[in-house]
Computed example of a mutant assay.
Amino acid sequence: MKNILKAVTLCAVIGVAACQGAAAQPIRVGFAAEPYPPFASPDASGNWEGWEVDFMKAICAEAKLDCVITPVAWDGIIPALTANKIDMIIGSMSITAERLQTIDFSDKYYNSPSAIVGLKGEQFGSTPETLKGKVIGVQVATRHQAYANKYFGEAGATVKGYPTQDEHNNDLVSGRIDAVQSDFLAINDFLKSEQGAACCDLKGTVKDEPEILGFGKGVGLRKGETELKGKINAAIKAIRANGTYDTFSKKYFDFDIYGG
């Protein structure tokens, strides 16, 4: 990675034509292989689109990095980063104390609470007391799974893990589980769909605990990649300041996704 960044810097000094070979290797950006609308999903032709795809394009353009999307199964995405199979992660990954033991993060680029969604007509909320005895679906290897295990599982709920959000949503629609815990912005997109609007509603957001739920979403980076981290942080700050961030965000959201 350091060699790639040195090559990019060299090209800026001596000209692209003089160093095309040196800068040919792109930055491999790890995205979760499964759809996660409205953040990232492949279209019918296999081309990725969504808010985080636009975000990636914006920061890579600002930082003058040649970035390519590299889909990786979510539960293997951090190992892929540490094994040098990808160079950074853009996947709505929360900045948590546990993850910071293994990888580094950029500054926050958006934030969203964790929410509980259940079948319409079911009277429960988003607290351990109201979810006692319920079966709650979560995506594995997420902050939601860690939170649900600690607060809902220990209070008498059954926490069931799924490889993807789509799978736990489908089980919720079918009545095989009582509720799901997920990122509010992502699950809100499901609730706006024909299927989600017909079956389910928001029961509430869970009590915040940053040590588990994180300090916002950041770009995942290998430890020691200080030059790349600096470029990404500067790019995030720049697109926030010059209006690019707001411009592409308005295509997906009618509020400021950056959050508190």
Rank of each mutant, 00 (worst) to 15 (best):
A80T: 03
T82C: 01
W48A: 09
E49K: 01
A73Y: 01
A73S: 09
P26Q: 06
D43R: 00
G30A: 14
G46Y: 08
K57M: 07
W74I: 11
V68T: 12
I78Q: 04
F31A: 06
F55W: 08
N47Q: 15
V53T: 07
A44F: 02
D75Q: 12
N47W: 06
Q25H: 08
V53W: 00
P37C: 04
K64P: 01
W48E: 03
D75P: 00
P35L: 05
S41N: 07
G50P: 03
E62T: 13
P79M: 07
F55M: 07
D66I: 09
E62P: 07
A24S: 14
D54L: 00
T82W: 03
L81R: 06
I78D: 05
I69W: 02
R28M: 13
D66M: 12
A83P: 01
L81T: 05
V29G: 04
A63I: 00
A33L: 04
K64W: 01
K64G: 06
C67F: 07
Q25R: 13
A44E: 14
L65T: 09
A83M: 11
A32K: 12
P35R: 05
A63Q: 01
A80L: 06
A44P: 00
A44I: 06
A24F: 02
A40E: 08
W74H: 14
E49C: 01
A73C: 00
V72D: 12
M56P: 00
I59F: 14
P38F: 05
V29F: 01
E34G: 06
G76R: 13
I59A: 10
T82A: 04
I69C: 06
A18N: 14
A23V: 15
W51Y: 10
G30N: 00
A80P: 06
K57F: 00
D75S: 06
P71L: 11
E52Q: 11
A23C: 15
G76Y: 11
L65M: 13
A73E: 14
F39Q: 10
T70A: 13
